[in-house]
Simulated scan of single mutants.
Amino acid sequence: MQAVDPSAADRTSWEAAVRHLYEDAFSFVATGPRTQKDWWADVLAVMERTVPDPRGWAGLDDTAGRRTTEVPAFPFRPPFKADPQRRLTPADVGQRLREIDRASAENLLLALTDGGCTLGNLRRFTESFEELQGMARTLLARYGDAFTCHTNVSVGARRDGTLDFGASHWGYTPMAFYGEDAGLVVVSDTEVGLFWTFDDI
């Protein structure tokens, strides 16, 4: 795939970057409208597939066929110790995410291209790291200049909001029914975007 211009966040380039980066992963990529100051509820609406993409752009949902009325946000779920019949709440979402900086978010989008949340996943691509980084920037460019990034991942997490992808291991706060899950939430004034990868078991 030809590298896309990171300053151009049009439908064609954004969808092409999503497909190219995540089509071989077990992924969930979707964007919904931000309607509240407390964006956790908006993230939950995207997880439950109750809102469409505000621009009509296509994401990915490899888990769509497995969700039920009882678990509308599948594969996302309440914390382990919660009543298994309890549905996910906005507070659950907020408690398991922490803010990271933009550079860490760019690298995280690349680490999410397969399970394990490591930049070693990039070995399967023929493009250079710089070209792949351009695709990650295209994904983020959709959300404008003033957005924040949040994740359940703690890859050598530091207090300054950075992730160390050179760490010998990675950690995360579970948010899914699968063995491991890692994701990024991008929050702008008008949209919330989710990029999630699962290790299917």
Results as ranks from 00 to 15, higher is better:
97 L>Q: 09
145 D>M: 02
138 T>W: 00
136 A>G: 11
153 V>N: 09
170 W>C: 13
174 P>E: 02
15 E>C: 12
129 F>C: 00
126 T>K: 15
41 A>L: 02
122 L>P: 05
176 A>E: 04
64 A>K: 00
45 A>F: 03
144 G>L: 00
42 D>V: 01
148 T>W: 00
97 L>K: 12
134 G>H: 07
105 A>M: 00
181 D>V: 05
156 G>L: 04
55 R>V: 00
174 P>N: 13
6 P>R: 09
82 A>D: 09
19 R>P: 05
191 E>R: 06
150 H>S: 02
184 L>P: 12
2 Q>M: 08
29 V>W: 06
9 A>R: 06
19 R>E: 12
78 P>H: 08
198 F>Y: 12
122 L>K: 05
184 L>Q: 13
63 T>G: 12
142 R>H: 10
108 L>A: 08
142 R>Q: 09
128 S>W: 01
158 R>N: 09
112 L>I: 09
84 P>W: 04
14 W>Q: 01
1 M>W: 05
62 D>C: 15
57 W>I: 03
121 N>S: 10
113 T>S: 14
88 L>M: 15
12 T>Y: 11
56 G>Q: 08
115 G>Q: 09
181 D>P: 14
145 D>W: 03
78 P>Y: 01
163 L>M: 06
48 E>C: 13
93 V>P: 15
7 S>P: 01
96 R>T: 02
111 A>Y: 12
175 M>C: 15
146 A>S: 13
75 P>F: 03
150 H>T: 02
133 Q>K: 13
43 V>G: 14
189 D>L: 02
47 M>Q: 10
167 A>G: 12
101 D>C: 11
166 G>W: 05
80 F>T: 05
59 G>F: 03
115 G>H: 10
9 A>D: 06
7 S>H: 10
152 N>C: 06
24 D>P: 07
91 A>L: 11
176 A>W: 06
177 F>V: 11
111 A>H: 13
120 G>L: 07
29 V>C: 06
6 P>C: 09
176 A>P: 07
10 D>M: 08
